[in-house]
Write a protein that binds this DNA or RNA. Structure first.
Lengths: 137, 137
DNA sequence: GAAACAATTCGTAATAGTTACGATTGTAAT
DNA sequence: ATTACAATCGTAACTATTACGAATTGTTTC
């Protein structure tokens, strides 16, 4: 995903172009790491002081539906990040302090395909947690 | 984990033996699947109508610390289950409707050990989601 | 088995994250 | 510019969880 594609997606699907949406998108494009709704809120409030929770959550949800953002759940908070370039299936190593990620190409599901017995598989989650070099020092 | 070991653990560590604790433990022993605090609450209220949230959460947290229960986070809710017998490292297939689980012996971390670059790994999560036969039909 | 002490529980309030909604504002198309 | 409707604000509601003083209960010791 990149900024232009994201903003075009919004336009093409009939969603309106607003300064707030542009700012949210460019924010995620600049910091390709997981961020919580609260973090987005605080960052946006610098430029838009009277910003509403509604706006943040509604747009984050919309962006995820459109494939502009991907999300996960960490420490009881939903976390969002700019969709990784290339839409191939992948997983992440995630810094538990700053949200920084590193792509993992390997998907463990290949090794498990023979296993299911009495279950119909609908999804999976594989995440490695750690500290990035900056956060560790 | 089994009921006796769990109740002994409580006793040996100086925690008091109460009917509520016994009931929680046997409940988890009987239904070896993930259950939310709310589910535990509702189940317990049949026998103890005036039961407090505090009691549930405090005990679930304590039991987890003692290794009687293990937990994960699903759909924004903490989920608890009786610790799997044998303390070996493992993962689960989880039914997203009823919480029923199946053990997965394979741990994908073995295949990833060479990968980390710029990260110090502190943990990981690997879960497969699906529907069990009962919930699917 | 009674007293003393501390852990447990109740009742309830507070907190955090998220969702919801009527009224108002803003965007884009004609 | 006018119209139509999406987006936003301001705020309230909701859900899961945590917290705390007061009352109760379990355990220990005599």
């Amino acid at each position: 995903m990149n900024t232009e594609t994201a903003l075009e997606l919004l336009k093409n699907k009939g969603y309106k172009y607003t300064g707030k949406r542009e700012k949210i998108v460019t924010m995620f494009a600049d910091e390709t790491r997981y961020m919580s709704a609260r973090e987005v809120m605080e960052y946006m409030q610098i430029e838009y002081p009277g910003l509403s929770f509604d706006t943040i959550y509604r747009n984050l949800t919309l962006f995820e539906e459109l494939g502009i953002l991907e999300s996960t759940e960490l420490k009881g908070e939903k976390q969002f990040r700019f969709s990784c370039p290339g839409s191939d299936h992948h997983h992440h190593i995630i810094c538990t302090l700053c949200g920084k990620t590193q792509k993992i190409e390997l998907c463990p599901m290949h090794a498990v395909l023979g296993t299911p017995d009495g279950f119909t598989i609908t999804g999976h989650k594989f995440e490695i947690y750690g500290l990035c070099d900056q956060c560790e020092s």
